[in-house]
Design a protein around this nucleic acid. Sequence first.
DNA 1: CTCCAGGTCGTTG
DNA 2: CAACGACATGGA
Length: 293
Amino acid sequence: MKIIEKNGNIIVQGLRDFNIGQTLECGQCFRFDKICEDDYILVAKGRILHIEQKEDDIIFYDTGLEDFNLIWKEYFDLNRDYGLIKKSLLKKDKVLQEAIHSKSGVHILNQDFFEMLITFIISQNKQIPHIKQIVELISNRYGEKIGEMCGKEYYSFPTVERLSKVSEEEFRDCKAGFRAPYLVNACRSVLEGRVTRDKLMNQSTEKVLEILTSIKGVGEKIANCVMLFGLSRSESFPVDVWIKRVMENLYFHEETKKDIIKEFAKEHFGEYAGFAQQYLFYYARDNKMKNVS
DNA sequence: CTCCAGGTCGTTG
DNA sequence: CAACGACATGGA
């Protein structure tokens, strides 16, 4: 990885195993707008980032070396060797070959814990474009304005303190529907310190799962998403409709319970289960994979 | 119109 | 413990 500072931009060269489009569109992230091919505006870490990929160059527009090193390098998980992860997964398992090869530029982002908790509570029983809409609405109403780009105003994701003051009715007005009381409850849990990033960071996977699922509206799947995307727990393996479908198609060849799939993934993919999950999820969704039988 | 979406909860058998 | 309907909202 070679980093160049030029005209107020940062250019990163020689990054293998990274594609900005795949990384943002794979379903882990909901706060971005596509300008054109491989060219995106992203909201994260309380700021706007215009980022573009031109062949092997990644351009972080209007970004200094300090912001890149302190914020974006970690956010985009640029220090991790994805080539090694893919090799390790493929060594054990040729079944993953197609999924990994077609989605080989996916990185798992290190996103904000609270934002992931709220976002994935919203995600239940909704399609990705809807999730994006609701998160944007909540940010526009309760976040801070952080700038303007291409004629659109951008707002940060709200703080715990601000969102804790939002009522159930107001969440319903943001189209959250039946999830509104869950959101109120989740905000309170974080504000009152029962569920915080610090508290979860040093716990065992089982304990983290137990604490997260103690929030009403957070089950196994959402807890695993929060762990994978918001707590850097790469052994997490969220099982949703798409993962169920793709696992049934590629491994079981018949209808299979989520618990069985989860256990299999833990055994089979081990510490890299989260990466396997994301390649499989994106691959299945992108190919509109059908149920078995 | 009907069906389903990155699910979870509460209720039944 | 497994199965099942309800839950808001919007798009196919």
